[in-house]
Each structure stands twice: as structure tokens, then as C-alpha cells.
Amino acid sequence: MSTFILLTLTGLGLAALYFLVASGLSLVFGLADVLNFAHGLFLSVGAYATWWAAGHLPGAGPTGFGFVLAAAFGVVAGAAVAALVELVLIRPLYSRTIEQVLVTVGLSLAGVALLQATWGADPRPFPRPEWTRGVTGIGGANIPNASLLLVLAAAAVLTLLLLFLRFTRVGLVIRAGVENREMVTALGIDVRKAFTLVFAIGGAAAALAGALGGVYLGSVSPAQGGSLLIFAFIVVVIGGMGSVVGSAYAAVAVGLLQQFVNYYGTAGLGDICVVALLAIVLLVRPQGIAGRAVTA
């Protein structure tokens, strides 16, 4: 029983990480039709900015409130880089989908190399606040606090995102834009302003994933974002593009499946099961769990 609880909660921790990356990807894709290969870069930016701030930013530090400040700095950096990428690189290629993908591919290659050139390819030890190093006993299982932190953070982000989408005018524009972008402009709304905002939100969420993922793994390296990105893509497709709630469900399914199969089967089998799940979802329901058709 305690193993079950442990696996469930650490699986949810993994799901939280996926959700933080996938929610932004999904919104960006749903609204702006951009498959953002550079999204993993936003995660790395968040991780490195947090790591840097913990050592250098006045007031910030590796534990306690100092760490909160450092993570906040990371999140702001991720959002700023994402907004900048949208404004400078993506916007001039508006409605040329393939070229946009190509640019984000180039950016992901160059960005990771840039991080490598600056801080080296090897993992750096990441600041881990006191509390996150401990465990909490739940139902007889000792759950790493870092997992709990991830789950709480993802739940908070999910709630905030839903409130934002539901109750603000920009949220309304985003929901409508995911359904039919043209009609939004035909009502006199400059939908491109929402693009920048969605990029920034996605960048912030990914950066948070970077900061908390760093705490969880205890280290940060330039390629981290890229490997997480592939599972985030799977989550986005399974969840249905443009749907935040769909991403949340899919992230939980993927995280739990991976954790349980990797534990009870061979290591690595869980990852393969996740791709099999993707194939099944595509065969049965090509448009994903929630919403908009993925085909065409």
C-alpha cells in the first residue's frame, strides 16, 4: 500500500512537471498554430536563471525566501525570453507555419549551445531549499517533499490559468481564438497581442518547471529541457491541442503510467508504454481527449 501511495505521488510529481511544460505548449499551439520546439529552452532559461539568481542576485539565495525570490527571477526571465522570441522571431513569419517551426528548431539548437558555451555541458548542482530535501509521511509512505512541491505548484498554476481564461477579457479572447482565430479578428480584436501574452505565460510556466525540476533533480544541465519536451509534446497531443484541462488529464495519465510501469516492469518500459498510449489515443480519437481536431 505504501509503495502504491509513493508511486502515485511521485507519478503525480512527474505529471506536474509535464503539465507545466505542456500547458504553455498547448495554448501556444491552439491559439497561434505554432509548434514551439524552443519551449524546452524556456525551461532551461528558467532553471539557469534561478540557479544564477540564487548565487548572485541580492536578496535571493538557495533556501527559504531567498529561493522563492530566485525562482521568481527565473520565471520572469522565462516569460521575458518567450515574449521576446514571439515578438522578434515568430511574429514576422505569421501564418507561415512551417517556417515558424523551423525557426524554433534553429533556436532550440542554438539556445542550448549558447547555454553550454556559457555554463558548460556538465550538470551543475542546483540549490535545494532545506524543506525540499526532506520527506513527508503520507499513509505510511515517505514522499519526497520536492515531489509534493511540484504537485502543489502545478495545481496552483492550473487553477490560476483556468481562472484567468474564464474571468478575464484576454482569457475570453484566447478561448475564442483557439476555436476560430479568424472570427476573433472579424470582431475587431487584434488577436496577435494575445499571442505574445500566451507565449509569455507558457514561458513562465515552463521556467517554473525548470526551477522546480532543478530542485527535484538536484542539478541543472543545458539539455534538460529538450528531453522533457518530447513527453510534453505527447501530453499535448493526447490532451488535445489548445486545451489546458486536457493537458492536465493527459499529464496525470502519462506521469502515473510511466512511474508505475517503470517500477513494476523494466526501467524504460514505462516510457515506451506512454508512446503506445499515444498511438492508441490517435487510433481511437484523433482529436485527443479534449476538444479541437488535431487532424488537418
Binding site: 475570453l172 478561448r175 475564442a176 476555436e179 476560430n180 479568424e182 472570427m183 479578428t185 472579424a186 470582431l187 475587431g188 480584436i189 487584434d190 488577436v191 476538444g291
Partner: peptide, 28 residues
Amino acid sequence: TPTHRLVRAGLGYVPEDRCVFAGLTVAE
């Protein structure tokens, strides 16, 4: 001129097949 500016300048467009936002409420 971009579509949203035209519309703000007073050109209203009611498309073929309605194109209401199916997932939003009437009020929204």
C-alpha cells in the same frame, strides 16, 4: 488594412455559416 482595424472602423461582417464560438456562452 488588417481585419481588426477595418471592423473597428465600422465594417461589420456576418460570415457564412454563422461562425459563432460554439464553446462559449451566448453572453460570452
